[in-house]
Design a binder for these strands. Structure first.
Lengths: 342, 342
DNA sequence: CTGAAAGCGCTTACAG
DNA sequence: CTGAAAGCGCTTACAG
């Protein structure tokens, strides 16, 4: 009930609470003697500072907010954990928020701003930028001096951006199917329409003079089950492709399972590739061909971007960091070249 | 810079800030007219309430803290996402914290208490309870009226507990190996020593008159890579078992890959089972035999436990909720019974 | 080296 | 139905 406050420590130690406050934050002009005394009584009383009060006056909360989608995707969780480690290492805590619907994003941003987070990481804003309430909420956050970094494709937004070139990943994997394996009937199995990944696929197909429009299919959701169930139906209606590029590893895993259930072998009958390079993709049988960036790298870059803003102002121009990705050719596309070492 | 506060709204709308505060929180004794006026100016000015100030005076922060280990394990992320949804649905936000070392836990608890979380979920405290600083930090949190639920095996702790019977899962899987498949040389591949999972394995082995001590091996870490690399070495040193029960699905996935690399077939040469029943386990080739509880169920129960405490006091006695698990016999143990439906 | 005072942005009795 | 005042627990100029 009765929380221990600096007033209690002041009373116990016979000092003013001003001095207590200073001693606890290791102010240089407090005598060592006093510091020792005060710290001792603080721990004796089981004192822990009220971050609400501290945050109110200091206008800093030592909190980084993360707003992202697909929080249950293992890829996301690898990133979150890496991020959390970096955030902790810098003395912050991570406040995690998610959203399903694009309209939700702006209210999530306002929530975070109200909680006075010092920094804010926003995942994938493609498709959100046109929502009417998005910009005002972002502007409000910026005006409040919150360090913001978005995590998206290159963007003209006036906030720092960590760019991951999914377009190039999709393009490169599609080109690999075409050039290395000579496939021409290559499907793309996406989730949302017109993603940047999809664009890479289309570009590669067009460059090779292949039709992509009729080979582009959309799943209603991006979990494994959905992909598994959908692929059988698709094969029945559309015939058999030579290869399938999937929106991400999770989808690819679902597809591979669905193909096996339909009696097709991967890669002998149909080749498959994913995007993300989640750890698990190399453990599959067959091992999954995919492309991605180590989450550790992403987390590190985000934190670096954030720290550059934190404390400093939002006045300096926004920077865009492009992270190089790597492509992993494994068994599922028909390659067996063991180039899988880190 | 200049944040919009209720003072600004008061000035703009010609009302006192007291009235603004009341109107914004929909106080019954404010006229509808005034409320409409004030809300309009609030949104016009882009106001969002400062939760620090609010939290300071109300002593509630609408935040639930989560402290857990193994945050990058996909199983954990499924749970976190489910939890996050429930937490949001009840009007709270989720503050996520992790710890590697058991000694860290108490300082994480203090952090959370300092942040004035309304509720706190603590993952697996087995092996932590004997740490000297653990109890004081937990007591402090309780005294501060934070609703606490631990997520562990049955415990005598004076906080609510969500119990998951890993011992029974391990026991049941081991018994399955013994009775259904007639295996006698069954290994257990664990991570920490003397976990409750391990205990289930030992019990089943002893009950069948089988030696377990020499068949129990510990991995230095619980990621897939470690398991994959370790299993080869182990086979070379110890010969070939008939079956391996793994600490969790992630370990089992690593093991299956390692076995394949060594030229062994699963389940023909060696049977494998995991624990957790992560979604992905049914997508593997071979599909993984495992046991677990749907994360959605776990999250739901946690939230229920938490909400019963939230607002109410910590005076009523601690309750322990036991969640029933399910066992899934799939291909990796040699069964093919498709009992995998939910 | 230490203290008294103001103030962070809100809510909530207490008056009217 | 509305307002003036106190206070949540801290930090930080301003004085000494």
């Amino acid at each position: 009930m009765a929380r221990v406050t600096i007033i209690d420590i002041a009373r116990e130690s016979g000092k003013s609470y001003t001095t207590v406050s200073r001693a606890l934050s290791d102010h240089p002009r407090i005598s060592l003697e006093t510091k020792v005394l005060i710290r001792a009584t603080a721990t004796r009383l089981g004192y822990s500072p009220n971050m609400m009060a501290k945050g109110l006056v200091q206008r800093r909360t030592q909190t980084i907010g993360l707003i992202a989608t697909e929080l249950s995707n293992p890829v996301r969780s690898e990133l979150i954990e890496a991020l959390r480690r970096h955030v902790h290492a810098s003395g912050y805590q991570l406040l995690v928020s998610g959203y399903q619907d694009e309209d939700e994003l702006s209210s999530r941003i306002r929530d975070m701003a109200g909680r006075q987070v010092d920094g804010l990481i926003i995942g994938k804003i493609t498709g959100v930028v046109e929502k009417k309430d998005f910009w005002p909420s972002l502007e409000a956050a910026l005006k409040q001096d919150i360090a913001v970094v978005v995590f998206s494709k290159a963007t003209s937004v006036r906030v720092d951006c960590l760019c991951i070139d999914y377009t190039a990943m999709a393009r490169q994997l599609t080109e690999h199917f075409i050039r290395k394996h000579g496939f021409r009937n290559i499907w793309y199995l996406g989730v949302d329409r017109n993603t940047i990944r999809q664009r890479g696929y289309v570009a590669a197909m067009q460059a090779a003079g292949l039709d992509s429009a009729k080979r582009l299919f959309l799943l209603p959701a991006q979990d494994m089950q959905t992909a598994r169930n959908a692929i059988g139906e698709l094969l029945r209606q559309e015939g058999k492709p030579q290869a399938i590029l999937c929106h991400n590893d999770i989808t690819a895993i679902g597809v591979m399972h669905g193909l096996r259930q339909c009696g097709y072998r991967v890669p002998e009958d149909i080749a498959v590739a994913g995007i993300d390079n989640h750890q698990i993709s190399s453990f599959f049988n067959p091992a999954l061909t995919t492309a991605g960036i180590a989450p550790e790298r992403v987390a590190e870059s985000m934190m670096k971007l954030l720290e550059a803003r934190l404390g400093h102002s939002n006045q300096s121009p926004a920077v865009a960091v492009h992270l190089p990705f790597k492509t992993y050719f494994r068994e599922s596309c028909g390659c067996c070249c063991p180039n899988d070492e880190e």
